[in-house]
Simulated scan of single mutants.
Amino acid sequence: MPRHIRRDNAAISSLVGFVALVIVILIALGIYYALLPRPPAAPLRAEEGDEVLVNYIGTFEGTDLVFDTTLLSVAVDNVSFPKAVSFYGQPIGSAWKEDWGGALFGIGSGTTSPRAVPGFENGLLGMAKGESRTIVVIPEDGYGPMDAQKLVVRQLLEPVPVRERMDATEFRSRYGLFPASGENVSDPIWGWPVTVSVAGDVVTVANSPAPGQIVRPYDAWDATVVSLDDAANGGEGLILVEHNLDPTMTDRVGAKYVGESFYLWQVDLAGGTFTLNWNSQVIGRTLTFRVELIQIIRQ
């Protein structure tokens, strides 16, 4: 009789167990790799053609005075963030900003947003959203070199004539009105009283401050009238005025005169001089910007 093939139940059981084990291992590996943290995708970084929204604090190298910012918290805090005179809302600055919350700049050509100076723009390249960076902008990559002819050196103890002579055109340019004998006006720089007399084409103004009087040149800082000698210099007269300035006031003091802005550039106590700078305060300066990138807009 033919012999029947015997079923090996033990072998079958071992095979089933092995297959089940393999399946369990594969499932476990699948779960492991599914739950394994994956490296984040490379962040979007600013490049030419992008528009970027940034917050920044701009300061002058050497003084750390803030001349511009997009952050209202910085703008209103003059203790932690002392301001330069050209900062928004200061005497020679622009009107106080209302649009706080970031500035939008285009990088490179082909964008509709305004572009920053080259040094600032180049510093934005490669930044990612949420990243902060310090950007240093030298004059060549910023607002250009300073015009030395706009630096005016004056004496801390300054001589001023009691009487000055001029024609009617110069008088109108200085005082903003037509001259009339016996008229009393205020000097536009010193603020002290002036008496006017007219003889033909010659207008004579007589300055008459009081010794010891505190005046405010350009309404920007204090000065003291030290003395007045009415007969000095052949009858022209001489007023000596001491400007109450010191080096800590540089970059912090300034004003406008005849529509032009200036600021205090230097005080040399040893040399007895001070320098007024009629350049814009950012011209010829190395600028430091602390920048945070808020958003990248890519077309």
Results as ranks from 00 to 15, higher is better:
residue 27 I to A: 15
residue 153 V to L: 02
residue 111 T to W: 07
residue 161 P to V: 09
residue 252 R to S: 02
residue 262 F to M: 04
residue 149 Q to H: 12
residue 17 G to M: 13
residue 293 L to C: 08
residue 265 W to E: 09
residue 80 S to C: 01
residue 222 D to R: 02
residue 133 R to C: 11
residue 268 D to K: 02
residue 198 V to C: 10
residue 91 P to R: 01
residue 19 V to E: 03
residue 265 W to R: 04
residue 232 A to T: 14
residue 237 G to C: 08
residue 291 V to E: 11
residue 43 P to N: 02
residue 110 G to I: 14
residue 121 E to R: 04
residue 179 P to I: 00
residue 215 V to W: 06
residue 273 T to V: 11
residue 197 S to R: 13
residue 281 Q to E: 06
residue 76 V to Y: 01
residue 34 A to E: 10
residue 180 A to W: 11
residue 31 I to P: 03
residue 50 D to G: 10
residue 225 V to C: 12
residue 98 E to F: 03
residue 19 V to G: 02
residue 282 V to W: 03
residue 231 A to T: 09
residue 11 A to N: 10
residue 204 T to I: 04
residue 169 T to L: 08
residue 38 R to T: 14
residue 24 V to W: 05
residue 186 S to H: 04
residue 237 G to S: 03
residue 211 P to M: 09
residue 280 S to Q: 13
residue 144 G to C: 12
residue 140 E to H: 13
residue 215 V to K: 13
residue 220 A to Y: 07
residue 106 G to Y: 05
residue 120 F to C: 13
residue 46 A to S: 12
residue 69 T to M: 00
residue 126 G to H: 08
residue 83 K to P: 01
residue 10 A to V: 15
residue 296 I to F: 05
residue 187 D to M: 06
residue 3 R to M: 07
residue 83 K to T: 09
residue 203 V to E: 01
residue 168 A to G: 02
residue 17 G to K: 14
residue 165 R to S: 14
residue 21 L to C: 12
residue 151 L to D: 08
residue 103 A to W: 13
residue 161 P to M: 09
residue 62 G to M: 05
residue 47 E to V: 14
residue 299 Q to S: 09
residue 211 P to T: 06
residue 83 K to N: 06
residue 74 V to H: 08
residue 261 S to V: 09
residue 213 Q to P: 01
residue 18 F to L: 15
residue 20 A to Y: 03
residue 96 W to P: 11
residue 35 L to K: 11
residue 213 Q to S: 06
residue 150 K to M: 11
residue 79 V to M: 10
residue 227 S to H: 03
residue 176 G to P: 04
residue 172 R to S: 14
residue 272 G to V: 00
residue 70 T to E: 00
residue 161 P to K: 11
residue 119 G to A: 10
residue 56 Y to I: 02
residue 259 G to I: 13
residue 71 L to R: 05
residue 126 G to Y: 02
residue 1 M to W: 14
residue 180 A to M: 15
residue 166 M to Q: 11
residue 96 W to R: 13
residue 211 P to Y: 10
residue 183 E to Y: 01
residue 147 D to K: 08
residue 206 A to S: 15
residue 88 Y to K: 09
residue 42 A to D: 11
residue 184 N to D: 11
residue 52 V to I: 03
residue 71 L to Y: 05
residue 8 D to N: 12
residue 114 P to W: 05
residue 83 K to W: 03
residue 137 V to G: 10
